[in-house]
């Protein structure tokens, strides 16, 4: 580990912190354009965070320490996740810190804390949101793991960095398994990031909301941290997806040129990805909450099929 490596790692984290709200803003803007609405400014999430950080925190009477700690834990988890996922380079100091399975665990930890915090106050909306979040997570996590196993089998390693290096270096081959895994991953990301077919980030309709129901009681800097963490989660998932399925452009080693080139490539990929996300959200209708298991079941199905197809078709014994 070199000093410059450390610097780049720090830079990657700062970049994540800075880009995450921008990505959220970009998706919202695209969505507004596609739906023929006048779009909010690109920087709206920053204004939002700024405003929230300046406001006072109002705590419910029954709130415990857990309620106050949870936003920090969630935020910390997401920052860690962003640091582990190779956004700019595969050779950063934190990359060997955790493999993909641990990464899923980090996401899971954040989920547990936010659900617990939601139930902590004892309002019906909070518990409802927490329960629904756990339902989604319980179904999404196995699918995500299956996706990761498929990629791990191709590269024979569960370390994100190794997977990305292997995938970026392979010849151009049509992997049906990767196609299946990609579809499954898209499904999971939609569910995990409270996007349209499963949840709608833009409403407060009590019958349907999941994420919003959990954070109703938060205010001030706590809410700001949680919103930021949500942005980071979207950023993390996007980067993970890009790293797994479109790994080209991510630098290996810590050469200045490669890393500097990786930044615009990443921004461009995120911009396209965000626009696609907004597009998919616009053409789909939100499904009833009871159909969410079916949606995630499909994701799981795809992931397992990818794994099986990988085993059958692509291994030459």
């Amino acid at each position: 580990m070199s000093f410059s490596g450390l610097l780049w790692q720090l830079f990657a984290i700062v970049l994540a912190l800075a880009l995450a709200p921008l990505l959220t803003g970009w998706v919202n803007q695209c969505r507004a354009w596609m739906q023929n609405r006048s779009a909010p400014p690109l920087l709206q999430p920053y204004y939002m965070l700024h405003k929230l950080f300046l406001k006072d925190v109002v705590l419910a009477h029954g709130a415990s320490h857990l309620f106050r700690f949870a936003p920090f834990v969630v935020f910390g988890c997401m920052v860690l996740a962003c640091a582990i996922i190779p956004t700019l380079s595969t050779d950063l100091p934190l990359a060997p810190a955790a493999d993909t399975i641990a990464l899923v665990g980090v996401f899971g930890l954040a989920r547990i804390f936010i659900s617990l915090a939601a139930m902590d106050i004892g309002t019906s909306f909070g518990s409802l949101g927490g329960r629904r979040e756990m339902l989604v997570g319980f179904l999404a996590e196995p699918a995500l793991l299956m996706v990761i196993f498929t990629t791990a089998m191709i590269s024979q390693s569960t370390s994100v960095a190794t997977i990305v290096e292997t995938l970026a270096h392979r010849d151009f081959i049509i992997y049906p398994s990767m196609a299946f895994a990609g579809i499954a991953f898209t499904f999971v990301s939609f569910a995990e990031n409270a996007r349209v077919p499963v949840d709608n980030p833009a409403t407060h309709l009590e019958l349907t909301m999941i994420h919003e129901a959990m954070i109703l009681e938060y205010s001030g800097r706590h809410l700001a941290l949680i919103e930021w963490a949500a942005g980071l989660k979207l950023y993390a998932y996007s980067c993970l997806g890009l790293a797994l399925f479109f790994p080209w452009g991510i630098a290996e080693g810590d050469s200045m040129f490669g890393l500097l080139l990786a930044i615009p490539v990443l921004v461009a990929k995120l911009a396209i990805g965000g626009a696609l996300l907004a597009g998919i959200e616009s053409v789909n209708a939100k499904v009833r909450i009871f159909r969410a298991p079916e949606f995630l079941g499909t994701a799981f199905l795809f992931a397992v099929l990818g794994l099986l197809v990988r085993l059958l078709l692509e291994t030459r014994v």
Binding site: I154, R170, A179, L305, E314, R316
Partner: peptide, 21 residues
């Protein structure tokens, strides 16, 4: 490893996967 698979085999595998799907 996988790199040895010719393009036609890849296509066949792809179509087969689509059929399964």
């Amino acid at each position: 490893m996988s790199a040895a698979i010719p393009l036609s085999a890849q296509l066949i595998n792809l179509f087969a996967s689509v059929i399964l799907l």
